[in-house]
Design a protein around this nucleic acid. Structure first.
Lengths: 149, 149
DNA sequence: TATTGTTATACTCTATAACTATA
DNA sequence: TATAGTTATAGAGTATAACAATA
């Protein structure tokens, strides 16, 4: 058993790659006055307006307490709306403003322009398969990956 | 300009996926009494015995000061050798012991067994293309990805 | 003087606990 | 009493600065 390792661990390839991609985003985000979490929030709200801050935190894999300062700033800058739900005044309805959407789309375009530079290293068919596969894996629920520890 | 975003950012897919994969490794590593950095060190030394601790730290993307405790423990447990270079007694020659190699291979097999579960979600051709592509991207030097910020 | 490794310290990021308000 | 949000605090992980040994 235990044949010789003929491929690196998935994690060993993906984690450092992720770190590099994050580092590559940093100057782009800074140019748009966005923190990484700020950008993540905008990106998530762009697809799916969210009913509670807790649900948002959960969806983006952050702690509830961590996103509060982020939301404060995004709201102050008029990039998101954060209105008490008339039905239940404890919850804050979260959505993007037009300005928020514009900013996030501009930043995203710049980020993807940079990413295209890397993807150019791949044959077109592999490139497509990579993106398709990553979408599939990224869509898996976290505990499907982690296993019921 | 700025056509509607038709794909998620690479980073947005890869980073959370990496976090989940790391979380999935955790219990497996714990079962072998390994920390993540410990495992990373063993894995790197397995492929390439390294001449200085600084070079090792650099190769695995860690700080010089961070790996010292890790090396201490691995050495104490007889998993690595760490001998002063007779040529230059400042440097420590680092390599795996037989026990170190065995342990890392066993852990790696368990990790990859778990990863196979996920890869099974992909069509075989995509799966191959994904691994091939990740290898290519992971082999890129970091500053090729980050750009000369 | 420059470099390897080490130790001690400070900083950042993240999670935990305690509090307020609504229900 | 339970839940959403917030604030204050503590903890983990990481990097920075100062030091000792060797070249």
């Amino acid at each position: 058993m235990a044949e010789p390792a003929n491929r690196p661990d998935l994690a060993a390839m993906i984690v450092p790659l992720g770190r590099s991609l994050m580092a590559a985003e940093q100057p782009i985000l800074a140019a748009h006055d966005l923190t990484m979490w700020g950008y993540v929030v905008l990106s998530h709200l762009r697809g799916t307006p969210t009913r509670t801050q807790a649900a948002l935190a959960d969806a983006i894999g952050a702690d509830r307490t961590r996103i509060i300062g982020v939301l404060d700033e995004l709201q102050q800058r008029g990039l998101i709306r954060r209105e008490p739900d008339p039905t239940d005044r404890r919850v804050r309805l979260l959505s993007l403003t037009a300005a928020g959407r514009r900013l996030r789309d501009t930043a995203s375009a710049a980020i993807q322009r940079n990413e295209e530079r890397l993807l150019a290293a791949l044959p077109p068919a592999d490139r497509r398969a990579l993106l398709r596969s990553l979408r599939t894996l990224a869509a898996l629920p976290r505990d499907r990956i982690v296993g019921t520890a």
